[in-house]
């Protein structure tokens, strides 16, 4: 235990891990926020009756889904520079790529939430004299949001858990910092990887648990 504590107290190790947490949180939070906004818009496009729009959004969703995150990072970080001399900040690319992925997932959730809504809900809203806007505001959207929340929470925790991939574009997020510490401590301390990865596990838990709790709270509130 003493040796474990010494790993974290040595130099700036603890501060560096916290910087890793900050990068992870910053990128996930920005990506989720943007994904929700764009996902709502693209989701509405997906249920459009125009075949061209449906096909385009469908293609976007499927293309993003089959593409590994590493490939997307490569496409948006390395390729533009290689081909057109275009350089984007690594963290900007990370947020962009996660947003691209999150938007696709979110749009599909929105589509699912809206199409699973019985047509009669809209009709009985109309039948009591509500305008289309009021039907959306008081009946469709509140129910869609309730159906969306579990998916959004799930997406958020998945984002947090996917951030380690950004090591590939040279961003030192939490897990990479952990590896750096393990590698220099590992020679002296056989238990280094156990303690460091254990602590990182705990940090991921701290990031994801409150979100899960919030989700459970909302579900309970709406279940009553």
């Amino acid at each position: 235990m003493e040796s474990a504590i010494s790993i974290f107290l040595e130099g700036r190790n603890l501060a560096r891990l916290m910087e890793g947490v900050w990068i992870t949180l910053k990128i996930s939070a920005a990506s989720v926020l943007l994904s929700v906004v764009f996902g709502l818009l693209v989701g509405l496009l997906m249920i459009s009756r125009k075949p061209a729009l449906q096909a385009a959004t469908r293609f976007y969703l499927e293309a993003i889904r089959v593409m590994p995150i590493l490939v997307l990072l490569y496409m948006f970080y390395y390729l533009p520079d290689k081909n057109w001399g275009l350089h984007f900040e690594a963290q900007t690319v990370a947020i962009g790529v996660f947003t691209l992925w999150g938007t696709a997932e979110m749009a599909d959730l929105v589509r699912g939430a809206l199409t699973s809504m019985p047509a009669h809900q809209r009709e009985s809203g109309r039948a009591i004299g509500l305008t289309e806007g009021q039907v959306n505001r008081y009946i469709i959207i509140p129910q869609a949001v309730r159906r969306l929340i579990p998916g959004v929470i799930n997406l958020t925790t998945r984002m947090i858990k996917t951030t380690p991939f950004i090591y590939f574009i040279s961003v030192p997020e939490l897990l990479k910092v952990g590896q750096q510490i393990v590698e220099i401590s590992g020679m002296k301390n056989n238990m280094a990887s156990f303690w460091v990865y254990g602590f990182i596990f705990f940090l991921y838990f701290l990031m994801c648990y409150p979100i899960s709790c919030f989700s459970a709270y909302l579900e309970k509130k709406w279940q009553n």
Partner: peptide
């Protein structure tokens, strides 16, 4: 309506 359609 036949299926009541209250707002859940």
């Amino acid at each position: 309506f036949q299926s009541y359609d209250l707002f859940p």
